[in-house]
Computed example of a mutant assay.
Amino acid sequence: MTSGMPDNQGSDGGTAWRRIADALAASIEQGEYEPGDTLPASVALAERYGVHRHTVRQAFRHLAERGLVTVSRGRGTQVTAPRFPYRLGRRVSMRSNFGKLGIIGSSETLSTAQIAGEAEACETLGLKAGAALWQVEGLSRADGTPIGTGVHWLSVARFPGFDTAFRAAGASMTAAFKAYGIEDYVRLSTRLTARLASEREAALLQIEPGTAVMVSLAIDALPDLTPIHIVNSVFAGERMEMVVEPFGD
């Protein structure tokens, strides 16, 4: 320590960790540190402010609680980029929703396959157990930043050649459906949970393995409420903000 006062006490009577947190927050707001930048290590800041490292870590925790930084092993403390708002309403279209906010949404197809559907998925889609389903995996980005990866299931009988249609549509479900004469569809349900990212998910989303992710299991249907599509999506929790709206639109 270089200061003669206790390391939890600032010259203005406030706690040292709060003084450090406020100084770092001001630097972030003024643009000295931009989204994605790594803040100085706790050792360096402890020396700068004349405090113990645990005091700096407390400041980091406070900034993380405010959503200004993300603290993770191996990457240090990074300035958090603004979260992308993702609207969950009666109609859910990533590109349309982002487009209204001036955000460029894009997707790519990772894999496609025909599988024998599991009983639960087939029942949801009104099919017999074991019916042929498309299993299509995609990766979504917002302004070029990976935000989510998902697996889609649809009936092969109802959507012949869907693998080709999905790729031709730039991995847009809305555009792919239009190739089959479906101009409109609605969201029946969305179930949200959370867990830690697997190594593969982390690699796709460019986050650390074990980082918290949001998981969405959704069912889409025709306007007459006939289910046609199931999608299980995994979103980078630190980059997304789910906006749940009444299903009345």
Rank of each mutant, 00 (worst) to 15 (best):
residue 8 N to E: 09
residue 227 P to V: 12
residue 137 E to P: 02
residue 18 R to F: 14
residue 135 Q to G: 04
residue 27 S to F: 07
residue 157 A to V: 12
residue 57 R to V: 09
residue 13 G to M: 05
residue 207 I to T: 00
residue 53 R to T: 07
residue 241 E to P: 00
residue 211 T to A: 15
residue 225 L to E: 14
residue 50 G to D: 09
residue 46 A to C: 02
residue 223 P to D: 00
residue 101 L to F: 08
residue 184 D to G: 06
residue 76 G to Y: 07
residue 69 V to I: 10
residue 160 P to M: 08
residue 104 I to V: 12
residue 199 E to G: 02
residue 120 E to N: 04
residue 199 E to Y: 09
residue 7 D to A: 01
residue 2 T to Y: 14
residue 125 L to K: 05
residue 177 F to L: 14
residue 130 G to T: 03
residue 145 T to Y: 12
residue 154 L to Y: 00
residue 100 K to Q: 14
residue 226 T to L: 03
residue 205 L to C: 03
residue 214 M to G: 12
residue 122 C to V: 02
residue 88 L to S: 06
residue 87 R to W: 05
residue 236 A to S: 10
residue 127 L to G: 05
residue 102 G to C: 05
residue 136 V to G: 03
residue 143 D to M: 08
residue 45 L to T: 00
residue 177 F to T: 01
residue 227 P to R: 11
residue 222 L to R: 09
residue 16 A to D: 02
residue 89 G to S: 15
residue 206 Q to W: 09
residue 172 S to K: 04
residue 93 S to P: 04
residue 79 V to L: 09
residue 71 V to E: 04
residue 179 A to T: 13
residue 173 M to D: 03
residue 211 T to G: 09
residue 124 T to W: 05
residue 83 R to E: 13
residue 174 T to Q: 07
residue 233 S to G: 07
residue 74 G to K: 07
residue 43 V to P: 06
residue 167 R to G: 13
residue 232 N to H: 14
residue 57 R to S: 08
residue 175 A to Q: 02
residue 242 M to Q: 10
residue 163 D to N: 08
residue 60 F to P: 00
residue 236 A to I: 09
residue 139 L to A: 08
residue 97 N to V: 03
residue 10 G to T: 12
residue 172 S to F: 06
residue 63 L to N: 10
residue 147 I to M: 13
residue 95 R to T: 10
residue 169 A to I: 01
residue 151 V to E: 01
residue 4 G to Q: 07
residue 122 C to P: 02
residue 215 V to T: 12
residue 142 A to K: 11
residue 245 E to T: 15
residue 171 A to L: 05
residue 106 S to V: 07
residue 144 G to S: 11
residue 204 L to S: 10
residue 204 L to N: 10
residue 84 F to D: 00
residue 33 Y to V: 08
residue 210 G to T: 00
residue 184 D to E: 15
residue 69 V to G: 02
residue 48 R to Q: 10
residue 103 I to Q: 14
